[in-house]
Design a protein around this nucleic acid. Sequence first.
DNA 1: GAGTGGTCTAGACCACTGT
DNA 2: CAGTGGTCTAGACCACTCC
Lengths: 268, 268
Amino acid sequence: MAAKYERAADDLRAKILAGIEGFEPGARLPSETQLADAYNISVPTMREAIRVLRLEGLIIAKQGVGSFVRSERRRIRRSADRYQWEKDRVREPEDVRKTTGATEKDTGFELPELEFHAVFEEVPADAQIAKDFGVAEGTPMLRRLYRTQSRNEDAPVSLVTSYLVYDVVAQNPDLLDASREPWPGGTQHQLSTVGVEVDSIEDVITTRPPTQQESDQLGINPVGVAVFVLRKTSVDTTGRVVEVSYVVLPGDRTEFVYQTKLKRWEWE
Amino acid sequence: MAAKYERAADDLRAKILAGIEGFEPGARLPSETQLADAYNISVPTMREAIRVLRLEGLIIAKQGVGSFVRSERRRIRRSADRYQWEKDRVREPEDVRKTTGATEKDTGFELPELEFHAVFEEVPADAQIAKDFGVAEGTPMLRRLYRTQSRNEDAPVSLVTSYLVYDVVAQNPDLLDASREPWPGGTQHQLSTVGVEVDSIEDVITTRPPTQQESDQLGINPVGVAVFVLRKTSVDTTGRVVEVSYVVLPGDRTEFVYQTKLKRWEWE
DNA sequence: GAGTGGTCTAGACCACTGT
DNA sequence: CAGTGGTCTAGACCACTCC
């Protein structure tokens, strides 16, 4: 026989998915005590049932207020088209570049809506980074931390840690100055000022549970929501890795899109 | 002040991440009672701390045995290269095609290791599918359910739901016969028998918590592990959507790789 | 202040695993 | 069989939100 908390969870889930009166998205659920009474189980057991549905992302609890049926979140689309688009803009005049950046392109937000944090630091390459770049461990790297989030309260977008080889970018001192961010035209343009042309970009996508810090920063309220980790590796025309960035995105508000064109058959 | 269960969780987490003697990957933790004593908290509170770490994927509990520090799972790489590779094989002779399929290419498993389930069904297009294909709701579709998993115990790989327009594939009755799976050469080859050449494929990747059924089928033991959902849309050379498949993959054992080649600048 | 969810306790019994 | 984690109870107090 199924556990009591499971039966309660199953029943509640069914009500929510069916959208029954009082259980539609956004609706406020009865209190834990009331629910426990309704299912003839103790409050802790009812809490366990609710926890299951929170893990599934169906319910959000707000302390002091109540529990609510979660409404569907709009996903932000992140397309690989952004890379070619960014490259094309490198050779546009500055006033064109200034208008928007790639993040704004994906999110649909306008520039002024985005709060932009940047912290720059010179750090030695650890084992992972050394491997990513194919350089010796300890090689000086420029590490840049970005946090982009909407100024209108609760819509943080991504946490970015970007690595560049220090000696490469140091040729242009402006690139070492965090206060110059956001740089009009993005990373590809920054690299172009030190003679680097990006030739290809590899994205590797994984998912994992968020750390506590990431939950806070990305505003991941519900338990059980994962984050995407995108490792983006840029290779220049000489085959050298020029940038590696790790981008953490909220799993419930992001989707990735990739287009693969196939070669046509030649019919004889 | 932080909650007791949080302090216990923080301490345990730190021990595990530091790999301290007795807390390295695979190690068996002290029992809940022992841990509760050690931290001077009640057993339910200690269980709460353990639950936190299970959510983070650091600990796996086995009833009747004990709790263990989770060892890192090897991720299976799923690269978009598979699509061109699959297309190239369509025009190879049958004995070459028979050797391996695209799933085996990605996973590294040999064919005989893969258990292959297939269920075929004719269903009317629901709203989502009608939109995916750009056809009228109710259009007859062929729905195919696949479940690929290793015969050696606990390594299921993916759950696939694939849709095709029924009238298109019905031209070749073999395509309607589930007992013919696995079809040597894959879906692109199947489509080629009814005169369809796939021209481009769009992948859309999202992540969400698994359903109970998916947890069971994919062998997702630890709480808090998400699944990837890949929606793959194949478009033929006439611009028509010919296949849509939804692939569910375990989030802790999968990674996606996409390469984006950029156009070279023309220097004057 | 009333009502909500968050934390915590001290028990109890059961289901499962290994020996 | 002994020991483990899984479920469950009946309370208690606290932190938070809203009126």
